[in-house]
Simulated assay, not measured.
Amino acid sequence: MKNIAADVRFISGVLLAHLLMYFTFQDKSIFWYIFSAALLLLISYSIIMEEVEDKAPFRTFITYGALSGFLLYGIFWVGYSLFDILSLPFVNQIDKLYGRFSPSLIWHYIVLILIIIPGEEVFWRGFVQKRLMKHTTVKLSIILSSILYSSVHFYSGYWMLALAALIAGLFWGWLYAWKRSVPLVIVSHLIFDLFMFVLFPFN
């Protein structure tokens, strides 16, 4: 664990992510502009500091990525349905999240697919988790990287978004540790977002 604190690349990357995400969530009117720019910077930082890992064949990462993305959406759908059935107040916050952060213009969807989804996986799994795996056990690296991934979402002002990021982070972290393939988790994230924002949104 002491080696993590001495890992300048790791610490600098996490601090950079917090700084960028803090500014990303400050102004709704320019959210998608800043979010796109932030992820481009994090992608650049990641590929300079750490080699992108892909140990899964093409057919494997497409198949496992698609199935896992659908599975994760199913988990979230079950959770949302329980909240709705029990009339928990969390449902209102979910509606507000969709209203504030969902893509609404064509270019939002384009940058979501080409920049934001790949950027999050390249940085949080391909850089943060991979460097943690050098200093800790696989299990601990999944937990720590997921907590860090979740933490930047608190700047949104919605704890439900941070909770969703934690659950998704644990899922994708485990998937990455299992197959050691960034493209696989990118496909999984893409399928999940496709269902969440385009095909069957929760609002």
Rank of each mutant, 00 (worst) to 15 (best):
V91C: 10
Y33K: 13
L67M: 13
H108G: 03
I4P: 02
E50S: 10
Y73L: 06
H108N: 09
I43H: 08
V122L: 07
P103Y: 08
F154Q: 02
V78E: 04
F10M: 06
T60W: 05
I113T: 15
K55A: 07
W159E: 04
M133Q: 14
L132N: 03
L16F: 07
K55I: 01
V152A: 12
N3V: 00
H153R: 09
V152Y: 11
H18G: 10
M133W: 05
F61A: 07
L140A: 14
E50H: 08
A56W: 00
I191C: 09
W107H: 13
D54C: 02
F25N: 12
L40F: 12
S81H: 07
N92E: 13
F31N: 09
R100I: 00
F83I: 00
L40C: 13
F61W: 15
G13R: 04
S145D: 01
A38F: 09
N203A: 10
I85S: 10
I106A: 14
D7V: 01
D84V: 11
G126H: 04
K130P: 03
A168Q: 12
Q26M: 15
W107M: 09
L140D: 12
M196D: 00
P89Y: 09
H18W: 14
S188Y: 02
F25C: 10
L82E: 08
Q129I: 11
L114I: 05
L140M: 15
L144K: 08
L132V: 00
F200A: 14
S156D: 05
L86S: 11
L97K: 08
F83L: 14
S181P: 00
L132T: 00
A37M: 13
T24E: 12
H153C: 04
Y109D: 04
H18N: 08
G157V: 08
A177P: 03
V152N: 03
A66M: 12
E121W: 09
W159Q: 02
S145H: 05
T136R: 15
L40P: 00
L140P: 01
E53W: 04
V182Q: 08
F127Y: 05
L163S: 10
R9G: 14
L97N: 11
L67G: 06
W77L: 13
E53A: 12
V78G: 05
K134H: 09
L144T: 03
Y109R: 05
P183G: 11
M160D: 02
